[in-house]
Design a protein around this nucleic acid. Structure first.
Lengths: 246, 246
DNA sequence: CGGTGCTTTGAGTTTGTTCAACTACCGTGG
DNA sequence: CCACGGTAGTTGAACAAACTCAAAGCACCG
């Protein structure tokens, strides 16, 4: 009797950092071969998350950070009485959970937007290993620093940009992230619903929908459901960055 | 001839972490006495900044982080064409410049709001020392993580809260930061102009002014120029957190 | 097929902005 | 000491961008 696909995978093809296609983007990016195997040893592989499943819930005790291997996730924070706030989308190679280090619990839930696999990196081990491997430590500092920088950009978007600029920025940023990962920057599929986009950008769903329609009628993008084609990238970039004319 | 005050200070009273009143809040907070002196050795003291002076400018090469010793600062990012975005205020014991680690230049200018002294901590040395002192490393991770968490809260404020809620949140947050530093949480002086508050909160100056007036007429706070007295803290907290009634 | 959830579109409303004028405050120089 | 000028803050009125509410269209799935 032939072994099942999943059995075969766990025997012959257990994922390893050394063979991971994301190695040039992910945390161990600065490490030597021999150090990567040390890093690899502390990683815990996880069963894939199905769409809608949570990687962890808000308030749960912090123990690990996670590197996205495939798929995508959203981070949602529900503060007190108010409704939820979607604070981030995560794509492959990105690090999830860094904001839980300080008070040792996760400040938001992280939920898969599609079938998603992650590598779990127990923070205690990561910290210990970062003592021995200066490059790893540096990379960890850089990851957090980058996230801080991205947050500042997001604040600017939320406090100064018009709805059109927000959507244009959202699309160009996504496009760029796909490009870096080797996918087409012009044609991609949104893994999140309109409601998620609206929540993330501080806009009503209806506004998101309306603006996408307008961008489409202006031949800047072609949108069909969650499929996006960017037809006029320079124009989209201009829209994203232009100062509000008064 | 008696020596001058400044001479006396530099001789007998050179500031040191061991005697700093902020030691329970600042980076070395988790260190043993003997380790603090190691940390102290890498710190560079700086001449005080005058109001309006920049600690560093956007785009300058990143080399150090800074701990605020006294006074306060604002971080301003001017992205491309658009106008400036004020992304943060810094109070004593807080760490400035962490968002510059990643791409090795400061992503925003940091400017003193009043006479301000800082301790400069060369990052290269900090990183090296963090290899030897796990507590220091942990504290650094926690500082960055906390800033990430605060950023998420700010995003929620900018994308979901009404102008009144924003002002109320701003005041309660400031109040809390003063409390932690041993100052009165009820009565304090704003070191920033109304324009700064508006820029930070994503509101027009006029809106800030109007809402402060309204809060005053409702006996929640008493505001006179930059002096603030919180008269009804529970009410202010309610205003800051309440869900928008529909 | 019928339902359920997501998306789009339309119409009226609201919150906060913009523009404009006025006031208070503070340091400077006559 | 007071007049002056400039900056910072306040207030009012009209306007606009995005929201809410409502309803219709679509697509996927059992």
């Amino acid at each position: 009797m032939p072994i099942s696909a999943s059995q075969r995978r766990s025997l012959a093809q257990a994922p390893r950092c050394q063979t991971c296609s994301l190695s040039s983007l992910c945390l161990p990016l600065a490490l030597q071969i021999e150090d990567i195997s040390q890093f690899d040893a502390i990683i815990r592989r996880r069963a894939p998350l199905k769409k809608g499943e949570a990687l962890f819930h808000q308030g749960e005790r912090f123990s690990s950070v996670f590197a996205v291997r495939s798929g995508s996730l959203k981070q949602v924070t529900s503060e007190g009485n108010g409704e939820d706030q979607l604070t981030n989308f995560y794509l492959p190679s990105e690090l999830v959970g860094l904001d839980g280090i300080d008070d040792e619990c996760y400040p938001g839930s992280v939920v898969a937007l599609e079938t998603t696999t992650v590598c779990e990196i127990p923070f205690k081990h990561l910290d210990a290993l970062s003592e021995q491997l200066p490059e790893l430590r540096g990379q960890l500092y850089r990851s957090m620093s980058k996230e801080l920088r991205d947050d500042r950009r997001m604040m600017r978007l939320l406090s100064r940009k018009t709805a059109d600029q927000r959507l244009a920025t959202f699309l160009t940023t996504l496009s760029d992230r796909f490009r870096r990962r080797g996918y087409s920057p012009y044609s991609f599929r949104l893994s999140m619903a309109r409601a998620d986009i609206g929540n993330y950008l501080g806009l009503a769903v209806e506004t998101v929908s309306r603006i996408l329609s307008r961008l489409q009628s202006q031949q800047v993008v072609a949108v069909s459901g969650r499929e996006v084609n960017i037809l006029d990238m320079p124009r989209l970039i201009t829209l994203a960055d232009e100062e509000t004319p008064t």
